[in-house]
Design a binder for these strands. Structure first.
Length: 421
RNA sequence: GGAGAGAUGGCAGAGUGGCCGAAUGCGAUGGCUUGCUAAGCCAUUGUACCGAUUUGUCGGUACCGAGGGUUCGAAUCCCUCUCUCUCCGCCA
């Protein structure tokens, strides 16, 4: 959601944002709807004001006087009812278009059509060169009794899996290490609902548009979240936070559910693209300050890259191009981690900043230094998501004998073990 | 799931048809006063949108959990829903 007045004053910026983000929204229709609604609103308010003033007088009249005046009001009342109906319809039409307007990307977002035009910013670690025939994570997982995909599919259909024994322990270890990592950075751990009201999906910008990707529990009108960003960001919806509360820095570890509609035949092998996974997610709700927001974005990115360095995994960071940005995102940095079996980097993290796009939809505000309620800025980033990170972890750290080396920082989370197998 | 009670401004809490955007208290902010770890007095104190503007503000509309209805007029009457509390049942 964008500020209505701001949009009126920055029509060109909005048009360009729609174009470079490749978002199909009719900006002209938006402005027409804006104009039409405001005109009706004024008519309604004027007429309502007249009637209100008249009825005040009526209260003081005698019975005879009143009878005549009532007749006169009848016509006006009918007219008001009609106008109110028109105004309400115009508002609905306007809101539907307003919900589609994109936030303009930051100046340093590369213009591009899709993820092939993302621009690498930094990279870390050496892509491993193996002097033996490598196994992919599925083969390694089977070898060590850690991963069972066929039986997972038998239980939950395609794109499901089982982690067993060391596989499941490895997942818990990575997630707990992520919690400790963020605890040290003063993020508050929160346990959140993953089954949420549609308004949370709307508030965070997933609906409308992302319905195909979410599992809905129709009977109860609830959605399973694809990320705990949804509940974490929505916690204070409708509130005005006090200045001391901001910024709010939190993480949640939760299961995540994604339908992956429209990805048939894509990434079908292994644990890369699955319907259910675990994620430790960081969310920050902060003041409406562009410079602060940008700096926080970089800090949150660093939390994740630091973590990948502790796991000794080679990664690169890309500046996501305009065409690959979501409607509300101002800027997004993805971390892609080296995955030997893919012989490429695969996306493991996504760090976004939104300005006040989400907070407007959520009606999430804080009281600024002048004491005025202002919409917050919101940001989020992955800390770690499993099993996707396990692909990198297992494959990069495999050894000639088929064993898997456990990076030093992770060892305490696996009872001090130095390797699997 | 069954029975009952409730939802009012930052908080507490009045208000059963017009004089209520809403008493009173607390809190907060500004000012005055008093020789003292503080008190007293005075004033101000919500949000959103529309319009005007000498950009200080001014005018209007809406908002008393949400939505609908009755009425010339609704915080107040009626209906539906949501949530909270109490009791019973069930349950990890």
């Amino acid at each position: 959601m964008l500020d209505r007045k701001w949009v009126r004053e920055h029509a060109d910026a909005v048009r360009r944002a729609a174009e470079i983000k490749r978002i199909g929204v009719d900006v002209d229709a938006y402005f027409a709807a804006d104009e039409a609604h405001r005109s009706l609103l004024q008519q309604v308010e004027n007429l309502r004001g007249e009637l209100k003033a008249a009825s005040k007088l009526l209260g003081k009249m005698s019975a005879e006087e009143r009878a005549g005046a009532l007749d006169q009001q009848k016509a006006q009342k009918a007219q008001l009812k009609d106008l109110e109906g028109q105004e309400a319809a115009a508002k609905i039409a306007f809101d539907a278009l307003a919900a589609l307007l994109p936030t303009p990307p930051a100046d340093d977002v590369p213009v591009g059509k899709d993820d092939t035009e993302n621009v690498e910013i930094t990279s870390w670690g050496k892509v491993p060169e193996f002097d033996f025939d490598i196994l992919d994570h599925v083969a390694l997982g089977e070898k060590h009794g850690m991963i069972d995909i066929p039986r997972g599919v038998a239980l939950g259909g395609s794109r499901n899996y089982l982690l067993l024994g060391d596989g499941a322990l490895l997942e818990r270890a990575v997630l707990q290490m992520a919690v400790d990592h963020m605890q040290a950075r003063e993020f508050e751990l929160v346990s959140v609902p993953t089954l949420v009201l549609p308004k949370c999906m709307e508030g965070t910008g997933y609906f409308p548009g992302g319905e195909d990707q979410a599992y809905m529990c129709e009977r109860d009108d609830l959605a399973l979240v694809g990320t705990s960003e949804v509940p974490l960001t929505s916690i204070h919806a409708g509130e005005v936070l006090s200045p001391e509360q901001v910024p709010l820095r939190r993480i949640a570890v939760s299961p995540c559910y994604r339908r992956e509609a429209g990805t048939y035949g894509k990434d079908t092998k292994g644990l890369y693209r699955v319907h259910q996974f675990w994620k430790c997610e960081q969310v920050v709700i902060g003041p409406a300050d562009e410079a602060w927001s940008l700096a926080e974005h970089k800090r949150m990115l660093a939390h994740a890259t630091d973590f990948m360095q502790l796991l000794e995994l080679p990664y690169r960071v890309v500046n996501v191009c305009s065409g690959d940005l979501g409607q509300g995102q101002v800027q997004k940095f993805d971390i892609e981690t080296w995955m030997p079996s893919r012989n490429s980097y695969g996306e493991t993290h996504s760090a976004s900043r939104f300005h006040d796009f989400q907070s407007r939809r959520l009606n999430l505000r804080y009281r600024n230094q002048e004491g005025k309620p202002v919409f917050c800025h919101t940001l989020n980033n992955t800390v770690i998501a499993s099993p996707r990170v396990l692909i990198a972890l297992i494959e990069n750290h495999q050894q000639a004998d088929g064993s898997i080396r456990i990076p030093e920082a992770l060892q305490p989370y696996l009872g001090g073990r130095k390797q699997i197998g």
